[in-house]
């Protein structure tokens, strides 16, 4: 009904050739002014708080001082980028970032898939419910609490770690692995897996519940065991989801969540725990080197943008344009 009147209006009253683009936009705003007005609220917010900072990016190419302001500070060109790339710890910081990211990806990616498959296979509904609902809880714990629990549990004297060590026949106290540079990555990655493995199953569980029961029945009539059904029915069903999640994760390989790293950082593990984002925070913001920090942040954002866009293209291509994450 509505559509046909619109067609008549556009088709007969205003000859299409004579309409200018600006006029069309104005007409649209007039027709849907209420919707435009509504969306104006979030748009204003986004323009100020997300696009606003983009204006400040230019200080990456200037020598920003608060007194002179963004516009008044002197241009220095690519100086800050050169400084960062030639900084003697540049390689370490980049490698640390990649190492933490890659470790999280390789260790953490398969866990929720396996967990989802197991929850799908088990015939004990109560067990499934209990595991499911318990495993979601850690996702809602804040980073500070998470690191707090981690430090308390691994306290060699008062923590669980120390108690278990003594229960299993150790004497005295074990060494403090919270301070140890060698254990930083393991603690970081595995606590992350502990926190997110349950929550990440949701998407796979949903994909698994969409598998048609007829497939399972047909497989059973053909004499397939449960394990064979997992391999030939369940696994292929979630494979597209798995592939897309994996590719998307690769797109954010250079972005390590810095809050948790910062909380776990200390002078003994700084050689493995300093990543790009923490460096921006400590040196850029902490030491008031605003321009330098902005330049590093910009480098980080641009690399992430390129990765994400290429990854999205890949997903689009693989799924035959079916799936577009953007």
């Amino acid at each position: 009904m509505r559509k046909s009147t619109a067609l008549i209006k556009e088709g007969t009253l205003v000859p299409a050739g004579k309409r200018r683009r600006g006029g069309a936009v104005w007409k649209n705003i007039k027709k849907n002014w209420q919707l435009h007005l509504m969306i104006l609220v979030p748009v204003t917010y986004v323009l100020i708080f997300y696009y606003g900072p983009m204006y400040g990016i230019q200080i990456a190419f200037r020598n920003f001082t608060p007194r002179k302001g963004i516009w008044g500070s002197d241009w220095v060109g690519w100086q800050h980028f050169v400084d960062f790339f030639t900084y003697h710890d540049f390689k370490t910081i980049l490698l640390n970032t990649l190492a933490i990211s890659a470790y999280s990806l390789f260790a953490g990616f398969p866990v929720p898939i396996i967990l989802a498959l197991m929850m799908h296979v088990t015939r004990r509904n109560t067990l499934r419910k209990i595991v499911q609902n318990t495993s979601y809880i850690p996702h809602f714990i804040s980073v500070v609490v998470m690191v707090g629990i981690l430090f308390q549990v691994f306290n060699p004297i008062t923590g669980l770690y120390g108690s278990l060590y003594r229960m299993l026949g150790g004497t005295g106290y074990p060494s403090d692995i919270r301070l140890n540079a060698g254990s930083f990555r393991h603690l970081y990655v595995w606590s992350g897996i502990w926190q997110e493995m349950g929550w990440s199953t949701i998407i796979y569980v949903a994909a698994l519940s969409n598998v048609s029961p007829e497939l399972h029945e047909a497989a059973m009539i053909d004499g397939a065991q449960r394990w064979q059904r997992v391999r030939h029915v369940d696994l292929p069903a979630i494979l597209p989801t798995v592939a897309i999640r994996l590719i998307l994760r690769c797109g954010s390989i250079l972005s390590v969540g810095y809050v948790k790293v910062l909380l776990m950082q200390n002078s003994l593990n700084i050689s493995v725990s300093e990543v790009i984002s923490t460096y921006v925070y400590t040196y850029g913001l902490g030491n008031m080197k605003f321009s330098y920090g902005t330049a590093i942040g910009l480098f980080d954002s641009v690399v992430n943008l390129i990765l994400l866009l290429s990854v999205n293209r890949l997903v689009k291509w693989l799924s035959g344009n079916e799936m577009n994450m953007l």
Partner: peptide, 24 residues
Amino acid sequence: FYTTLFLITMLFSAGLIPKYILMV
């Protein structure tokens, strides 16, 4: 148009320090 405007914020962020300067 609006969707693109919102999606860009997911892809690219100005970074910590420009946001801090804006807030100041």
